[in-house]
Design a binder for these strands. Structure first.
Lengths: 394, 394
DNA sequence: TTGTAAGCGTTATCAT
DNA sequence: ATGATAACGCTTACAA
């Protein structure tokens, strides 16, 4: 392994000259510079990272903490993760990924041993042990997420509270008075993922304030969720909800949208759909859904930016909180509330259609496939009967 | 920051004693050990990683190279990635992730600068620049994948060639003589992802040898794939394929399975479906599909194991190739070929059903949603007509 | 403009 | 069983 001494010898100069050529911290004659550069090239010299760091230089490594846990949305987190890695690399930093179960210990280890220059916390929960322990890390630390207590850690997040209130307002403004709320996976509430709780709380509170009637779904679990049932429950209310706000993931949202359409409802004419705290951009959807999204790029860029600036300026950012204004992406699934949605009027009496079919189901295969298919069949009859009533076939 | 000197001072011993207490490379009296340990505890001392490495110690960091590229299957690669990270951590190694576009430069940088002890290459293509440059890395390097030339790099992969041949044999043995091959995304062939090419080649070659007639899909692109059309094309052949082998990703496979069922075909009675080179385990499927899967855990465990052993034994593994026997996961989507599948006989004339509906479609909304719905509608009629023919409703 | 040498925090060799 | 110290490869203050 060629070291700085070898370069110096080859170039016929002293080691300090080589060092200064590399760092540019001292003027060097162009003749000498050339010799040195040539020697470096020739020997394929790359400075030893450890020796540099021993001299107090930065390591240019950032730890990203993202402990794996049950039921994590890989897509979603890898989006954050990839974005952060990209941002870090663009700024000349490598990324050390910490996924182990004992995150705090890992972070202490890599910060105390001077392995990394800073720490980024992903997937932060409402009460996050990593954030709570931030004071003990000897390096700057930024969290994406806003836990309850965060006095020793910089936090950056979308303003989910505002998102909740704004969503309620948005639907109200469109004339909706009855809305359904499709919950996120129960597991997300249980682990107290800050954003799901915050959004839901504020949404419900605001809805209550302005007189928006909310029908909230039961607990949701990706494995067992029954979209037809949820839709059927929702539509059997009187008056029925004219809008659906969803906190759930893509697959469940897709199933629900499918079930809504299967129930003969057109989006957005008959029912508005709004997905909040999701990241649908690259997801294949049954039908595009308007969204108040996560914004991995924006969040990660801001977080990484302030982390790196804190590192390089050597100035603490502990306790700083940055809340980002939520964005709204219009994908055409929101419209003014339809009139006359009570049962027995010009609207569809979908529950009847479902009910009729449900009797049949008892005899049918219990395979999910068939259940879904039969949902489609009942649409067929729904549109047929609509047609008989002289309504346009659309 | 407390260093080893501080510990020595506090404990009232010399620095070497502290070092030996930590490394255990020299017998120390228990009395002294206690004093030292207490001091370490008291000061929260953690050795400086760089100083350790300057003394020739291992860094316990492994670089994982996984350049981001267009159209990469995030789910799939994050599976490999997460597995590797997990394996590394279990062995006491941290993971440095290299995702930058200039992978070779990054790897050279981190190996030459002694930042990492070894390198794992993920997402290796048929002609992989990273593998080709392996001789220049000054650290052990293992690739998951089997590129054309690999003399300076250890390679570990599933035996996709064998998988291809075996899949052909498997279907043949079940009596299938006509099979459809649903290609992977075109972009995967274009970037010469080793496994897609290898599998397809060997599958086709073996099919040819044993007399298996293969109807291969056109180019596939996630964004524009039309499952109904593919199924319709496939079923319009005479005799129609009785089995489908798929190299495509989950979403496309799901769409295709849905379309098959929508066309009135039961899996596996009417058509067998086999997915190869995929990783469906945790994916929500329309219907379970038997699979010759990727095996991230197994591959990563083996790869990481040999990498770490090469690191710790300081013995080269360049050029070693390990091919893993492919596994078959039975999810009940494979059965013996049905008899009488020619058009006009006891089978379904599905293309007619599609054809009839297609005329209607011209007037319908062009939204994808409606297209899919109508596919479902045509099932309804298909099963109805079957019923009229006195067949069991299932 | 360039060279010399101290020192970063460890580990390992040589003493005791 | 323990201590003193050289060495690792680099950066930088000081010297020339």
């Amino acid at each position: 392994m060629a070291g700085i001494k070898d370069v110096a010898k080859t170039a016929g100069v002293s080691v300090s000259t080589v060092s200064y050529v590399l760092s540019g911290k001292r003027p060097i004659s162009s003749k000498t510079t050339d010799k040195v550069l040539k020697a470096i090239e020739e020997l394929g010299y790359i400075p030893d990272a450890s020796a540099q760091k021993m001299r107090g230089q930065l390591n240019h490594i950032i730890a990203i903490s993202e402990p794996m846990h049950e039921g994590m949305n890989q897509m979603q987190y890898s989006a954050y993760f990839m974005q952060s890695a990209w941002q870090a690399r663009s700024a000349g930093y490598d990324v050390l990924l910490l996924t182990g179960p004992d995150a705090v210990a890992d972070i202490e280890r890599v910060t105390h041993s001077n392995l990394v220059d800073g720490v980024l916390l992903l997937d932060v929960e409402e009460r996050d042990a990593r954030v709570a322990a931030a004071a003990r890390y000897r390096k700057p630390c930024v969290a994406i997420g806003l836990p309850k207590s965060h006095k020793d850690c910089a936090c950056i997040d979308i303003d989910f509270a505002k998102m909740g209130r704004r969503s309620a307002d948005r639907l109200f403004a469109l004339g909706h008075r009855q809305v359904a709320l499709l919950r996120a996976q129960e597991i997300d509430y249980e682990r107290h993922a800050g954003y799901v709780l915050l959004f839901r709380e504020e949404f419900l509170a605001r809805a209550d304030e302005i007189g928006l009637d909310v029908f909230e779904s039961g607990p949701v679990d990706n494995a067992t969720f029954d979209a037809r049932r949820f839709v059927s429950d929702m539509l059997s209310r009187n008056p029925r909800p004219t809008a659906l706000v969803s906190q759930s993931g893509v697959s469940i949202l897709n199933l629900t949208v499918t079930a809504l359409m299967a129930a003969g409802l057109k989006i957005p004419e008959d029912i508005s759909v709004l997905s909040c705290g999701t990241f649908l951009r690259d997801e294949p959807m049954r039908r595009p859904v308007s969204e108040e999204p996560f914004e991995p790029e924006r969040l990660c860029a801001i977080a990484m930016g302030s982390l790196i600036s804190s590192i390089e300026k050597r100035q603490s950012i502990a306790g700083e909180v940055t809340l980002i204004d939520p964005k709204f992406i219009d994908r055409g699934s929101l419209a003014s509330a339809p009139r006359n949605v009570g049962s027995g009027d010009g609207g569809f009496s979908v529950s009847a259609s479902f009910g009729g079919r449900q009797a049949d189901l008892a005899q049918a295969d219990s395979a999910q496939a068939d259940v879904e298919t039969s949902a489609s069949e009942s649409i067929a009859s729904a549109s047929q009967s609509r047609n008989l009533e002289g309504e346009p076939m659309d």
